[in-house]
């Protein structure tokens, strides 16, 4: 599922799959739409570097299809709450 990363000097970054652009659009959207998370709709896919049990790995959300996932964001390491 998760590939192990080689710990190099560069700081790994996350990736978001680029959605294929619709080639012809008849109507231009009036403003850039910010995608909102909606319940009952797909969770946006991503790949992110991670630390897991002594290893550095890449985690891709869609690898977890078939399982329940709790995705938690928090302000920062070494914070108090």
């Amino acid at each position: 599922m998760a590939e192990e990363l080689k710990a190099g000097c560069a700081r790994p970054t996350s990736e978001i799959p680029i959605e294929k652009e619709v080639s012809i659009q008849i109507e231009k959207p009036t403003k850039q739409e910010a995608k909102m998370i909606r319940v009952g709709k797909k969770a946006p896919d991503f790949t992110a570097p991670a630390y897991h049990k002594g290893k550095f790995i890449n985690v891709t959300l869609s690898d977890y299809l078939g399982k329940w996932v709790v995705l938690c964001f928090y302000p920062g390491d070494f914070t108090f709450v």
Binding site: G40, K42, A43, K67, V70, C72
Partner: peptide
């Protein structure tokens, strides 16, 4: 420059059920 405390429950089909 930080993430707020977001918590998302995602079902086996990859759909968000709650946040």
């Amino acid at each position: 420059g930080i993430e707020t405390r977001g918590r998302f429950i995602i079902d086996p089909d990859g759909n968000v059920q709650g946040f």
